[in-house]
Simulated scan of single mutants.
Amino acid sequence: MDIVKHITTHTERLRADLAQASSEQLQGIRTMTLRFFFLLPDFEGIVRQYINIEINREQLLADIDSDTLEYYQQAIEVSNAQVDVYADDYEELEQLELFVLNAFEYATTGSNPMDAAVNLLLEIIDTLDYYENFSENPEYWNKLLEEEIAFQNELLEQVKANERIPMDSYDQRYRKVPFTSC
């Protein structure tokens, strides 16, 4: 799949449809999508290394659901303030580290829940596209990417119909996917 051809249209649809979502639906999407990123290699280790906090997955998900995110937001602010891209010892992050850190920040942001939900859904697409481009089996990842876009479109239909969205959707969909470093 040539994601570039589809991403603009898909992003517009995400923004339009999620603009109609309730705050509960948006929090649910943030929680549900973050579960995808838990499946990537060393989620907790990356957060520990770059944001300098220990996380408990269940507590993190509960905090997102209850919108008690100050602890995480403060840790991200401190971490971001300590990064000096001009320092001699600055190291570029690996792509998977960026996906994890972006997802963590989107999920714990307090500013605009709709933007967070859109960004998390797009970050999943970007992650699958990365695996397609850098794995030894691009056909496998291409199929997952196509299925993901269809799944997100179904999710939008559920949101518009005000249907309950299963929070374990991403756990179920990607549990057996071999996420490894490329």
Rank of each mutant, 00 (worst) to 15 (best):
R57W: 12
I165H: 04
L14H: 05
N56V: 10
D42M: 10
V100A: 03
L120E: 13
L26W: 06
D67Q: 13
T108K: 00
R30V: 04
I51H: 05
A103V: 07
E77W: 11
Q152R: 09
V85I: 11
R175W: 14
W141E: 02
I53M: 05
F37Q: 00
F99D: 14
E132Y: 15
D42C: 13
R173Y: 08
E70V: 04
E44H: 09
C182V: 15
A107H: 05
F179L: 08
L98M: 10
M1T: 11
Y130H: 07
M167F: 14
L40P: 11
D65Y: 08
T108F: 00
R48D: 12
L122M: 05
N119H: 05
V4G: 15
L121Y: 12
D63T: 03
I125P: 09
Y130I: 03
L128F: 06
N112A: 08
L122R: 10
Y90N: 01
T180H: 15
F38A: 09
T9G: 12
Y130A: 02
A161K: 08
E148H: 04
V4F: 14
N56D: 13
Q59S: 07
F43A: 02
R164E: 14
E132H: 12
N80Y: 04
Q49K: 12
T31P: 04
L156E: 12
A87R: 11
L121A: 03
Y106I: 00
Q158W: 09
Q95A: 07
E12M: 06
A87L: 09
S111K: 08
N112F: 04
S169K: 14
L155D: 04
Q27W: 13
F36I: 04
Q25F: 06
D171Y: 00
Q158A: 06
M167H: 14
E58H: 10
N112D: 13
V159D: 11
A75W: 08
Q73W: 09
R173E: 03
E163Q: 12
E12D: 14
Q59R: 07
Y90G: 03
L60A: 07
Q82C: 05
R57K: 09
L121C: 03
S135N: 09
I55Y: 15
H10R: 12
E123S: 09
A150G: 11
S135A: 02
R13H: 12
Y140M: 05
Y72M: 00
D42N: 14
I29T: 01
E157K: 08
E70K: 00
D89R: 13
N133C: 14
L60T: 06
D126E: 13
I7V: 10
D84G: 01
R30G: 05
V177Y: 10
F43S: 02
Y174D: 06
T109Q: 06
K160Q: 13
F104D: 02
D17A: 08
V177T: 10
V100K: 05
K5N: 08
P178T: 03
A117H: 04
E136T: 02
